[in-house]
């Protein structure tokens, strides 16, 4: 048993943390090997395990990075599954930005039944809450062809594609994507591959939330130590001390849940998804607690956009709405545990 990350992962995490503190762009992340670490050696990268993903996304969350790395990993992973090694190579080099458009309105967090379909090489349908579509060079779109699910490459700036883009609660951008006979390149792919990659994306959101929680905790502790009311730092009040202790306990539980999922990311599907749902449910509860407690213990200042906690709390709340919420995963956990 060993709960330490390998030397390589620690080094990557450290250099990623330092780079993000200085402010990183897409090219910088590629140069640092962050994008390569999302893929296995077979896929052309040098990582791809649950723990590689966990350390990277934890740092991205800690820094509040809003670049669509998760989207690149999700879409890129499916491209790798479909044997598109040239595209994967470009993704790792930071030359190709891509995102997966799979969710459809009205399905809530379910993967299907989808209605987007392909006819004579053109895809039509509507995809919802697609992260990073506004900056993507390539959309990977899930669609039905003769009733079978597959993935298709679509140029987001090409004919038949309309994006309606808004800011996202997590600090990035999300788009509604309307496809009206948009020319599409078929890549193949299966439902099982989608589910494997979504489990990895679920791990990504959980690890991101974990890093974000660490930041929220650090800011709140700092505030408790420095904010003076009634002549003492408010951290001297036992009522707040105990709540902060609970926050610290719950964050460690979340860390363990992320480790459980990372270690089981490549287990057989049922066991993998059981861990994914356990982690997402627990991290969802914890992220919610940490966001609300951080705001409450700060008081009014945390309600302002100007104070750095605002995007952090929003990111924690947003985590609950990505790849299934607490209840969706609770339901799935019960089903998979039966």
């Amino acid at each position: 048993m060993d709960f330490n990350h390998t030397e390589e992962r620690r080094m990557l995490a450290d250099s990623l943390r330092r780079t993000l503190e200085r402010g990183a762009d897409w090219a910088k992340l590629a140069e640092l090997g962050v994008l390569g670490a999302l893929f296995t050696e077979d896929e052309g990268g040098f990582g791809g395990s649950g723990f590689d993903l966990a350390v990277i996304y934890e740092e991205l969350g800690r820094a509040g990075c809003t670049l669509p790395v998760l989207e690149a990993g999700l879409a890129g992973g499916l491209l790798a599954d479909c044997g598109q090694s040239d595209l994967v190579e470009q993704i790792i080099a930071g030359e190709l930005r891509t995102t997966l458009a799979y969710a459809e309105p009205g399905l809530r967090y379910d993967l299907g039944p989808i209605t987007t379909s392909v006819n004579s090489g053109a895809v039509s349908g509507r995809k919802t809450v697609v992260g990073g579509a506004d900056t993507a060079d390539l959309l990977v779109v899930s669609a039905l062809q003769d009733g079978a699910l597959g993935f298709h490459g679509v140029d987001p700036k090409g004919p038949g594609v309309t994006l309606h883009t808004t800011p996202s609660l997590d600090g990035g951008m999300v788009s509604e994507v309307t496809l009206d006979a948009a020319p599409a390149t078929p890549y193949g792919g299966t439902q099982a591959q989608l589910e494997q990659r979504l489990a990895a994306a679920t791990l990504a959101v959980c690890a991101d939330a974990l890093g974000t929680m660490d930041t929220a905790k650090a800011m709140t502790l700092d505030y408790l130590r420095t904010r003076t009311q009634f002549g003492v730092p408010i951290g001297k009040f036992q009522a707040l001390q105990h709540r902060m202790a609970d926050v610290a306990i719950e964050i460690e539980m979340a860390r363990s849940a992320v480790i459980n999922l990372a270690g089981n990311l490549h287990a057989e599907a049922r066991e993998r998804d059981r861990h994914a749902s356990a982690a997402k449910n627990l991290v969802g509860r914890t992220a919610h607690l940490v966001a609300e407690e951080a705001i409450q213990m700060h008081g009014g200042i945390a309600m302002t956009e100007e104070y750095a906690l605002a995007p952090i709390s929003r990111r924690l709340i947003a985590a609950g709405h990505r790849f299934g919420d607490e209840d969706w995963h609770l339901e799935r956990f019960i089903r998979l545990s039966a």
Partner: peptide, 19 residues
């Protein structure tokens, strides 16, 4: 809180009048 949960993924697009 429950209203936000109820709208599911629609809670993610975050549009604000004054921002």
């Amino acid at each position: 809180d429950l209203a936000r949960r109820a709208v599911g993924p629609w809670a993610v697009p975050f549009v604000s009048e004054d921002m």
